[in-house]
Design a protein around this nucleic acid. Sequence first.
DNA 1: CGTGTAAGGAATTCTGACACG
DNA 2: CGTGTAAGGAATTCTGACACG
Lengths: 102, 102
Amino acid sequence: MTSYKEKKVISIGIVSELTGLSLRKIRYYEERGLITPERIGNGGSRRYSFADVETLMKIAEKREEGVQTSEIKKELVKERNQKQVRNQMIRGQINAHFNIRK
Amino acid sequence: MTSYKEKKVISIGIVSELTGLSLRKIRYYEERGLITPERIGNGGSRRYSFADVETLMKIAEKREEGVQTSEIKKELVKERNQKQVRNQMIRGQINAHFNIRK
DNA sequence: CGTGTAAGGAATTCTGACACG
DNA sequence: CGTGTAAGGAATTCTGACACG
């Protein structure tokens, strides 16, 4: 079900290498609610997915354009909702196809 | 090009959680040449891909069946070669299709 | 051969805070 | 608001070795 892209397995150091963002920035964007890594172990170290890495790249672009984190957050939430809707429509089609009346 | 599945980004602790194998075992299978994580940083810590994780799961099964690491290694090498051949055949087909004579 | 474990050191990550702007 | 940095501590990872079998 959960694909490799969504699986939270990457530590913050690697994410930093992958995105070119500082640890501080990555943690700050989490604090602002733009990303939600998983917490693991006693120390509570963060684990990110490739999807998170992609999101961070988008965030980096927006920030370079001067967009504030609060704005970026709104955009990200909107995108997530749209994805939601798309998935629900697809599920609806599938249901309609297989059991028109249950 | 390199998909998420092949990208070496997972630390050994996470791999251990994902596979249920001890750190010792994971390192040992590397020593025997069954897997080849990437080394990063000064400390030279290991980074694995999801593909490595899958390979480790296969290895775990074989080991439970009592197969020795030397045998498992042969099997893995064979599988890799077969993949190689398949890919080359596909490339051949594509080439044949697009430029029969160059 | 395959795996566990204790050992000492190095690198990673965490949090809360002060700084600048 | 967004980011850097020094600070102290905790958890992770590394290697080489001894142990058992």
